[in-house]
């Protein structure tokens, strides 16, 4: 059995608020993600799933608990150690357009991590174009600005960006929530293809259980900062045991019926 790419133990995040009681967004969460495995993290708003994404990528520092990424404990790492994480974990954000610097072209955004790792400009941009093409964009889109392209195209560029440093773990934080339904399906297909081809470990966060179906291998259901159910996707979706999971499932199928 391979070492998991990401191992999270007893992760907790407490937010202090001035003059009011503190909020516990994540409460003692433990899970792991292995290579070539797609783990879905599902829950409603306020369940803490986005906070987990931020902690795993160390955009936020955990209050307590341990995060081990590629065998390294990154729970409280700073400075250069933090920057080195770029080659281990990448993220695809919820809002495609605002995840790119509005004053830079998409190509520059995709190539940024490569430039930071020391690659020269021409090589980095060539590689960026290559990646963008692999994600279904035309190479000349590298010269477009985020406001000039559609949400779906922007998200494809974001995926290309996430692939650039060849990180073994990719975290997707609700990557389809800001897109329309047809584009959603395209992006999910792209992610699935990428994950299979490269054998990536993927943490897929969303609030829609239906999306998770057919995409994720395992699924974790979160409520109020805790994991209330976990297991193989097929099993959990077929026979949910926790009432909250059932609730989510019902909402998903209701939405599906409404679509039809």
């Amino acid at each position: 059995m391979l070492e998991p790419v990401l191992e999270v133990t007893d992760l907790t995040k407490r937010f202090e608020r001035k003059g009011r009681s503190s909020v516990v967004a994540v409460d003692g969460v433990s899970f792991c993600v292995r290579a070539d495995e797609c783990v879905g993290l599902v829950g409603g708003s306020g369940s803490g799933k986005s906070t987990i994404a931020q902690m795993v990528t160390r955009l936020v520092e955990p209050t307590s608990g341990k995060i081990v990424l590629c065998g390294r404990d990154v729970s409280h790492v700073r400075g250069a150690g933090l920057r080195a994480m770029a080659k281990d974990v990448q993220m695809v954000f919820q809002n495609p357009a605002s995840s790119f610097d509005p004053r830079r072209t998409l190509g520059e955004g995709v190539a940024e991590s490569l430039r930071n790792m020391g690659m020269k400009k021409p090589a980095a941009y060539a590689r960026a174009r290559e990646l963008m093409e692999q994600c279904g964009l035309s190479a000349n889109m590298a010269d477009c600005y985020p406001r000039e392209v559609s949400g779906g195209q922007c998200q494809r560029a974001a995926i290309a960006r996430a692939l650039a440093p060849d990180a073994p773990l990719v975290v997707c934080d609700e990557p389809t929530s800001a897109l329309d339904v047809t584009t959603q399906a395209q992006i999910v297909r792209l992610l699935k293809r990428i994950q299979c081809e490269r054998g990536l470990a993927m943490l897929f966060i969303c609030h829609d259980l239906a999306l998770v179906q057919g995409f994720c291998d395992r699924v974790l259901v979160m409520q109020n900062g805790r994991i209330v159910e976990e297991g193989l996707a097929s099993e959990v979706l077929a026979c949910p045991s926790h009432p909250y999971t059932r609730l989510l499932l019902e909402s998903a199928s209701l939405a599906k019926k409404a679509d039809k």
Binding site: R83, A86, F100, A158
Partner: peptide, 12 residues
């Protein structure tokens, strides 16, 4: 803005 988070993750 998320683009700053993305830049951080790119090792900036």
């Amino acid at each position: 803005e998320p683009y700053l988070a993305a830049a951080r993750l790119a090792g900036c």
